[in-house]
């Protein structure tokens, strides 16, 4: 009897996992639909939106500048390392610009935002749930999804493209400095490469990705936090899951979007 239940539980484990994932997907999508609907209905939570925009956006700028600059600097080094062998040093600026605007800016920028903002959203909402603050909102006839979730999702979706742009710009400055001051590439050559090869569509494609990443990141983090149960341990688990799931989803959706965008260009 015991061995039977052991085997059946092993056999059923994949189904359980699939069922769990579908369940999570279902509640997350429901939360998204509800928060979008509440977003367009009054009362408009302008104050909350502005506060979230400040938290997600303004307070993340420095992090973007820092991580962006180093990403651009190392890209210049590695790009030079590769292209030097073919005598194509003049292409370093163009390569870094393309990599930053299409991939590195949106993706690494979003991963940094997950680490800083997604974790905080999950932890904050989780502790509000566990200390009955969300119940208190409900008891005051305030819609908690409209008050808490809609502004966060909206703010993250709006802020991420700007943050990715800042990341990429800081990266270009870093790459420029390393290329001209350290690698001995002529400044005019660097800039000419960027000008000749960087297409506006590279930037818009990166921005479209950022919008999706912002939405995904905020939705996953809010969903995990909002439904967190089980005291501080539950909040800790929710925060970890939010960061892991959001990061994985960003990379997976990046691949899917890149596939679509390649096809269209």
């Amino acid at each position: 009897m015991r061995t039977l239940s052991f085997f059946s539980s092993i056999l059923l484990a994949p189904f359980e996992l699939v069922r769990f994932c579908l369940d999570e997907l279902g509640t997350a999508l429901l939360l998204l639909v509800r928060s979008l609907m509440r977003m367009v209905l009054p009362p408009y939570r302008v104050g909350e939106f502005v506060r979230q925009l400040d938290f997600v956006g303004a307070q993340t700028v420095l992090l973007m500048v820092l991580t962006g600059a180093f990403t651009g600097m190392v890209s210049a080094l590695q790009g030079y390392n590769g292209m030097h062998r073919y005598g194509a040093e003049s292409m370093v600026g163009a390569t870094v610009a393309l990599a930053l605007s299409r991939e590195l800016g949106p993706v690494i920028g979003a991963l940094m935002v997950v680490a800083r903002v997604g974790s905080a959203m999950a932890a904050e909402l989780g502790s509000m749930r566990n200390s009955q603050q969300i119940d208190a909102l409900v008891s005051m006839a305030v819609d908690p999804i409209q008050y808490l979730i809609s502004p966060r999702i909206f703010a993250a979706t709006v802020a991420l493209p700007f943050l990715a742009l800042i990341f990429s710009f800081a990266g270009m400055v870093g790459a420029y400095v390393v290329s001209t001051a350290y690698l001995g590439i002529d400044a005019g050559t660097f800039m000419a490469g960027v000008r000749d090869y960087l297409d506006p569509s590279d930037i818009t494609q990166g921005l479209i990705k950022s919008v999706v990443f912002g939405l995904l990141m905020a939705l996953v983090s809010c969903h995990k936090g909002y439904y967190a149960t089980g005291g501080s341990r539950g909040v800790a688990a929710a925060t970890t899951e939010a960061v892991v799931v959001a990061s994985v989803l960003i990379l997976v959706s990046d691949y899917l979007m890149t596939t679509l965008m390649f096809r269209s260009t």
């Binding site: 502790s127 509000m128 200390s131 009955q132 603050q133 119940d135 208190a136 008891s139 005051m140 006839a141």
Partner: peptide
């Protein structure tokens, strides 16, 4: 509509921190 007439003191106060 009904909850607008309520006031609730939760067991642990549930203040917005």
């Amino acid at each position: 509509r009904i909850r607008r007439r309520f006031g609730v003191l939760f067991q642990d106060a549930a203040l917005f921190d």
